[in-house]
């Protein structure tokens, strides 16, 4: 297309670059993309959670399970926790298309999040409620798919 357009675009791009970098830095540690949701802390800081999604990167329209490992701040396994998960897309005002469940996994640290499915691209918010002994805490996960 026309040269005028080419330059206009370029100009815009240059103008936006600093803004873009500021924004993307400010957003660091906020929502994560389809690639990685490796490590997160719970709201009150009781637990640290690591995820391993299957498949990786996370895809839409496919039922999937994630391995979730839960430790205390000082790295000890959190055994026998009761974990529930709810979530959805606030922008579209709907929840998960499935009813995922969390059950104990292969070792004391691990739990299996089964029956997850994302049926649209966009921002997903998930909330894991983790109850172990007397300590209940919440993990918020934002995903951009």
């Amino acid at each position: 297309m026309t040269l005028a357009f080419y330059f206009r675009d370029r100009g815009l791009l240059l103008l936006w670059l600093p803004v873009y970098f500021t924004l993307s830095h400010a957003a660091l540690g906020q929502p994560v993309g389809a690639g990685d949701i490796a490590f997160q802390s719970t709201v009150a800081g009781h637990y640290e959670v690591r995820f391993d999604s299957q498949p990786k990167p996370i895809v839409i329209n496919q039922i999937q399970s994630w391995v979730m490992s839960v430790r205390t701040g000082d790295g000890l396994c959190v055994k026998g926790a009761e974990i529930t998960v709810v979530g959805g897309m606030p922008e579209h005002n709907h929840g998960f298309p499935t009813a995922p469940l969390v059950r104990p996994g292969a070792n004391d640290c691990e739990y299996l999040v089964e029956g997850l499915r994302f049926h649209m691209s966009g921002r997903w918010e998930m909330s894991f409620n983790i109850k172990a002994g007397a300590k209940t805490d919440t993990l918020m996960v934002s995903l951009d798919l």
Binding site: S65, H94, G95, F96, T98, A99, P100, E114, G115, R117
Partner: peptide
């Protein structure tokens, strides 16, 4: 049977 096991119901 993951689809069936994790099937959801709801008014929506």
């Amino acid at each position: 049977c993951a689809e069936l096991r994790f099937m959801r119901s709801g008014v929506d």
